[in-house]
Every structure is written in structure tokens, then in C-alpha cells.
């Protein structure tokens, strides 16, 4: 198995363990504003996904991601199946040439687009899109504009996702089960944004292990001062 495929297998296992560890916390968040099934459904689905990718024989990174996505799609009921699993399957098309900084950016953008499209959600609806959007934007800019090393770019993306999760607390839900609560949804952290952050944190930890590095200590701010003239805007 190639190095990047092995890293993706390790990432799926790490996500499965983390979601299992956070299972009751996710369910508590979901009990407040939803149907209290997020922790259980996600834990079951990712555990099955970890088993499925472990059974693959000499897979490439794309096959690992696709297999994990298909398993999550089938095993996780409700909206999380299509949102997490379906989007992984769809975005895996970007990993035909394996995982590089460039393909990772394309993967992240395609994943975000699919989640937005499938859930018909935008930033500010109190959904996982609120965590994903700042993460994907920060990752893309860190790689493409700031030329940061991939691990640092990913660490910044995680910091951005964390800010996005906090953003879901004081706003009103406009999509998903929580939207039925109207104003009563204000003041609650979105479970989907939270599990999205956990997944990203595990991707970062696994990437650091894989690169034999420490997770860099960063915040989501950019190191560069924008030069509008130079950008031609």
C-alpha cells in the first residue's frame, strides 16, 4: 500500500475511535435540538467504515476514501449518511492521483460543495457548513496563496473549523431538524458542525503522525497582508 493510502486508512480508524469516544457528547448536543441519534449513528457507521477499509487489499487512497464513504452512506441513517458518506464518495473523484496538497484542496472544495448542495445549506444556517466553510477556505488559501506547509495549512483549517463550531452557538437554525425549533435553537452548538471538527482534528493528528511531525501551534489568521493591487483585484 502506498504511503498516502496507509495514512488515509489510519485516518478512518482514528475518526472511528474519536467518534466512539465522543458518542455520548454528540448525542447530548443532538438531544437538545434534534432527534438524539447523531452520536450513535455516526459511531456505528464509522466503526463499520474502519472495518471496511481495513479489509481492502492494497488499495489506493481514492479507493479507501470511497469505501469509507459508501459504508457511512449505508450504515449511518438519517441525514448524516448522505451528508458525510455521500459527500466522501463524490469528493473521492479528486483523489485519483493520490493525496497531495493540490488534490487535498480540490477534495475539500468538492466535499464542501456537495454538502452545501445536498443539504441546501449556507453559512449561518447552524449546520456543519458553518464549520466546513471556514475550514475549506482557510485550507485553500493557506496552500495556494500563503504557500504554507500542508500540515500547517491543515492545522489552520482545524482552527478555522473550531471558530465555525463556536459560531453555531449564538445563531438560529434554518436547516435540519433544529430549524423546527425556531428561536429555541439559539444558544445550542450544532452536533454536525461538532462532529465535522472532530473528523478534521483526527485528519490533522493522523497527517502529523504520517509526516513524523508535531501538530503546529497556529490560529486561523493569515500570515500575509493582502495586496489588492498585486492580486489584480
Amino acid at each position: 500500500m502506498s504511503g498516502d493510502a496507509a495514512a488515509v486508512v489510519a485516518a478512518v480508524e482514528a475518526v472511528a475511535e474519536r467518534i466512539q469516544a465522543e458518542r455520548s457528547h454528540l448525542t447530548d448536543l443532538d438531544s437538545a435540538i434534534g432527534d438524539a441519534d447523531h452520536g450513535g449513528n455516526m459511531a456505528r457507521g464509522w466503526a463499520e467504515a474502519a472495518d471496511a477499509v481495513a479489509d481492502l487489499e492494497d488499495p489506493d487512497a481514492q479507493t479507501v476514501v470511497k469505501t469509507a464513504g459508501k459504508t457511512v452512506l449505508s450504515e449511518v441513517g438519517g441525514a448524516s449518511g448522505p451528508l458525510y458518506g455521500g459527500s466522501l464518495v463524490f469528493a473521492s473523484q479528486e483523489l485519483e492521483d493520490g493525496v497531495t496538497p493540490e488534490t487535498a484542496v480540490a477534495f475539500a472544495e468538492t466535499y464542501l460543495e456537495k454538502v452545501q448542495d445536498r443539504g441546501d445549506a449556507s453559512v449561518g444556517d447552524q449546520t456543519m457548513v458553518d464549520a466546513l466553510t471556514p475550514a475549506v477556505h482557510t485550507f485553500k488559501k493557506s496552500i495556494e496563496t500563503d504557500d504554507l506547509p500542508p500540515l500547517e495549512a491543515l492545522a489552520k483549517a482545524v482552527a478555522a473549523a473550531e471558530a465555525g463550531v463556536q459560531f453555531t452557538v449564538p445563531i438560529r437554525a434554518s436547516k435540519g431538524r433544529a430549524s423546527y425549533l425556531g428561536w429555541r435553537s439559539v444558544g445550542h452548538q450544532d452536533p454536525g458542525a461538532t462532529s465535522t471538527l472532530y473528523i478534521m482534528e483526527e485528519l490533522l493528528e493522523t497527517a502529523a503522525d504520517h509526516l513524523d511531525s508535531e501538530v503546529p501551534d497556529v490560529d486561523a489568521s493569515s500570515p500575509t497582508i493582502p495586496d489588492a493591487e498585486a492580486a489584480g483585484e
Binding site: 438519517g78 449518511g81 448522505p82 451528508l83 455521500g86 445536498r118
Partner: peptide, 10 residues
């Protein structure tokens, strides 16, 4: 509702 639409789309 909700996930019924998404799962049907997939």
C-alpha cells in the same frame, strides 16, 4: 422530511 429527501436523492 429532511433526510428522506437527501437519501432519496442519493
Amino acid at each position: 422530511l429532511g433526510s428522506a429527501v437527501m437519501n432519496a436523492e442519493v
